[in-house]
Structure formats: C-alpha cells, structure tokens
Nucleic acid binder design. Structure first.
Lengths: 251, 251
DNA sequence: CGGTCCCTTGACAGCCGTCAACTACCGTGG
DNA sequence: CCACGGTAGTTGACGGCTGTCAAGGGACCG
C-alpha cells in the first residue's frame, strides 16, 4: 500500500514536476498513519465542522458539495485518487461546504504540522502541493464558466473530459476507457441540470457517438471530438510540466 | 497614499486578524514601488500570459473572466480594493484566464520574492494572506453554487449581497449604500444571464423594495431582507475573526 | 447635433424543469 | 422459485424561466 501510494503520488505530481525518490517518500510517509476508509454515500466532513487535518485521497471518488436551505444541492468539485484537499484549511474556523463520498473511499488524514514539516524540508514537494492548490482553484473557475455559459450538452461533455483527463493523469484509464461511478443524479448536481435532462443529454452524446456509457464505465472513442463538442480547453489543468524548472536531478 | 494603503490593508485583513503596526507597514512597504494605473475597460493580464507578479488592488474595480471561442464570456470573480491576487501564481506557466478593469484601477505590482520575504518575517501577515487565498477559493465555490442552483432573482440578489459585504469589509460603504460601477451587461456575465433578463430581474428587485439602484450607486434598505431573497449564507466569507488566536498583542 | 453606450420594453421561441409513469436491475427474504 | 422493494435509468407531456431579436429612449460627449 505504501508502494502504491508512492506510485500514485509520483503520477499525480509528476504532471507538474519530477519528484526525487526522497520527495516521494516524504509524501508517502505522511500517509503512514491516519489511513481511513469511508463507505459509499457518507459524509467525510460537514459544513460547519471545524477543520482539523488535510486529506490525501488514495482510492475511490468523493465530492465537495454545498446545499441551500430548501434542499437544492450543488456538487462543486470531485475528489479523485491523488487529490490533496485543503492545504492551510486550519486557518478557517469552520467549513463552508461538505465533502461526501460517491463510492467507498480510502484516504490519509494528515496533521497540519506534518505537512508543514515536509514542505519545509522538501522545496520541490512544497511547490508541487502549491501547484495542486492552484489547479484546484483553476478548476473551480472553469466550473463557474461551465455553469454560466455552456449549454447542457457542452456541460456534460466538459465534465466527462475533465474527469477522464484527471484520471488519466494518475494512471486510472485504459486507452479511452475509465471508471465513472456517478449516477445521473450526481451528474445533474455537478452541472446544474435536472436528472431528466441529464438523461436526455447523455443519450444525445451517445447517439452522436461521442461516448459509450454503460454501467459504471465510460468509453471515449474520440477524445478530440468530445473536447470539441464541449468547447474544452485543457489549459486550466496546467499539465504543462512548468515544474521542469524545479525538477530533481536525481532522476 | 502610503497611509491610505496602510489603512486599507488594516481594514481588509482586520476582518481576519489584528495586524500589528509593523505587520501593516510590512505589507504597505510592498506597495512602495510598482504602483500602476489602468484605464477603465482594459486588460491587466490576458489568458496565455506568463505570470510575473502578484497584485494588490488599491482602488477601482476589476474582474477575472474567461472566454469561449465563440465569444461567450464569463466573469468568474470581481476584484475590489484590498484584494490580493494570485499568491504563488508564478508556479504556473501561463494564465488560464484574464483580468480586466471595470473602472480605472490603481494597484501595486509585487515581486514574488518580496512577498516571500515579508511572509517569512511576519507570521501573522503570512497567515492573513493565506486566509485571503482560502476566502477567494470559497467565493469561487459559492459562485458555482450560485450559477448551478439559484434562480435569476436569487443570483442577482446574491451578487449584490456579496459585493456589498466585501466593500463594507474595507470601509467602502456608507450605511446601506455603496458604489456599483457595473453595467447590466457585466452583471449578466457574472451571473450567466442575458442583459435583458438582468434588466427584468433588477426591476423585480426594485419593485420588491429590496434595492435602490440608480446610476452607479446601490442602496440596500434592508440587508437581511435581500439576503433572505438571495438565500445568502455569509459563512463562506469567513469573517469570523478566527485569526484572533493569531492576533498581535501590540494593539 | 450626431454618435455611442446603457437601459428599457415587447413579442416570441426554445431550452430545460417538473410531473408522472414505466422499465430494468439487483439483492433480500419468504 | 418467486415476491418484493429500492435504486437507477428512461420516456412522454407540458409548462415556464430565460434567451433572442428588435426597437426605442435617455444620458453623455465630442
């Protein structure tokens, strides 16, 4: 498990910089204690809770969500394996949103002090974590654009593109195939659409041959075509290895 | 001007923590050089640019925005006096969005190294800046909720509540009154609504007595009523002085 | 005084939500 | 073996919120 965590971390942050074995070990060491499992469809953190630790997601899918008083719910982000959530969050008195699982999740709970220690000792790791935080913010802006300007078809296509590329970044795809454990209700809450309209939109994407979605498996026969339908611009994921300037020389 | 910057900084971060005179001076000193002015309706940074510096907004209004290829435009955030933008941004190779002015803007351009120096030397300042970054992220999540779940009336009311409270936080309101230099087209681009529908929505808010909007001045006769109409929950602005635990003892 | 920007209003259309019913699937238990 | 219930997906009918198109008015400015 430590090995696979190391691998996950290498893939995740390898999208930004090449971490040395020592760097990777430092991150993996954070996950030594505090491994926790959560069942599907349960809350990990609730709005109003006091933040206590950061979390590194190791397996499974979760989401950040916000609710209105009358029950309307908006998923504002998905959390996938390799995602680190809430750097510096302990500065806030209480959470303004909740985090809930979609499917069973394994994550590592990390004390703020431990992260600080590792970031102080490993400059490249520090930069990689800050990069992760910047990309998270960029995704949130892109979602704002998605909800504000895109049509239903574009929104759903965009969501699939983003999820696929993020999963591919951590080695969780096979060719054009990936897992997609979301219900259509989840997709609706993420895109601001009703489940009925999600259903129609998914079928439109199917009939255009842009996706094959059966069970919990998504296949994208032609990623460029799906991106085109979505008006997807990959720049916000910042997968450009800018971090090469910070790459280790050790390998 | 240095004095007024000091005052602005004190108000802005005073919402989180009480900075010592030395802390405030340290921030103000960052703005000594690199003061720049921008005309109304011009770009400060463009998508694709290489990030070079952070910016502390001293006066005027600006916005972050993203565009789609066909010209659709989404404002994803407003930048008001006291806002600091893009901590750590230099880790990214290029901007994924643009920043443009609404009205003439004065800002201080700050070199990454200078910020780093101040944050290293002043722990409370560092925490205040990280808090600012967390609040920015929280606002982006709230906008996601706004666009995904709220009706046109709720969205516009919510926008007005947020802008008013943010301005009040830096002392730019008088009673229930504040400046609102946005055109209805701007409001539309921020809320994902057409200008025509913004117009109708604003008039509905007017006829309900929730706002008085004339010229570039917004009056909110009953903030609680407007918040109620918007379904506004202030928690995401994190104005709870959690930072009191980090407050200076110097006064 | 013409031009431009911004606001306003009306008519009409369409995207998407709501409501409702139905199917498929699956695990449980009688 | 089948009944049963719950979840997820699907489909049709209908309505409404919001967009589009178009035109006009007011304020400001060169």
């Amino acid at each position: 498990m430590s090995l696979s965590t190391n691998d996950l971390v290498a893939r995740k942050f390898g999208q930004f910089t090449r971490l040395s074995p020592g760097d990777r070990l430092a991150i993996s060491s954070l996950t030594g204690e505090g491994i926790r499992q959560f069942a599907a469809r349960t809350d990990i953190v609730r709005e109003g809770d006091t933040p206590t630790c950061l979390r590194l997601f190791l397996s499974g899918w979760a989401c950040r969500y916000k609710m209105l008083e009358d029950g309307r719910r908006q998923i504002v982000a998905f959390l996938l394996p390799g995602d680190l959530c809430d750097l510096n969050i302990f500065l806030l008195r209480e959470m303004d949103h909740s985090i809930g699982t979609i499917v069973p999740v394994t994550l590592a709970e990390i004390a703020p002090a431990a992260i600080e220690r590792v970031m102080d000792a490993h400059a490249r790791v520090a930069k990689a974590l800050l990069w992760e935080q910047l990309v998270t913010a960029a995704m949130q802006r892109e979602w704002t654009l998605n909800l504000g300007q895109r049509s239903a078809l574009e929104r759903v296509a965009h969501l699939f593109c983003e999820l696929f590329l993020r999963l591919r970044g951590v080695g969780l795809t096979e060719g054009g195939r990936c897992e997609l454990p979301l219900t259509q209700a989840d997709m609706g809450e993420a895109t601001g659409l009703s489940t009925v309209h999600i259903n129609r939109t998914v079928q439109e994407l199917r009939s255009r041959g842009l996706i094959v979605l059966r069970g919990k498996e998504l296949v994208i026969p032609d990623l460029a075509a799906l991106q085109d339908a979505a008006g997807f611009n990959v720049n916000y994921l910042h997968l450009d290895r800018e971090g090469r300037q910070f790459d280790t020389n050790e390998g």
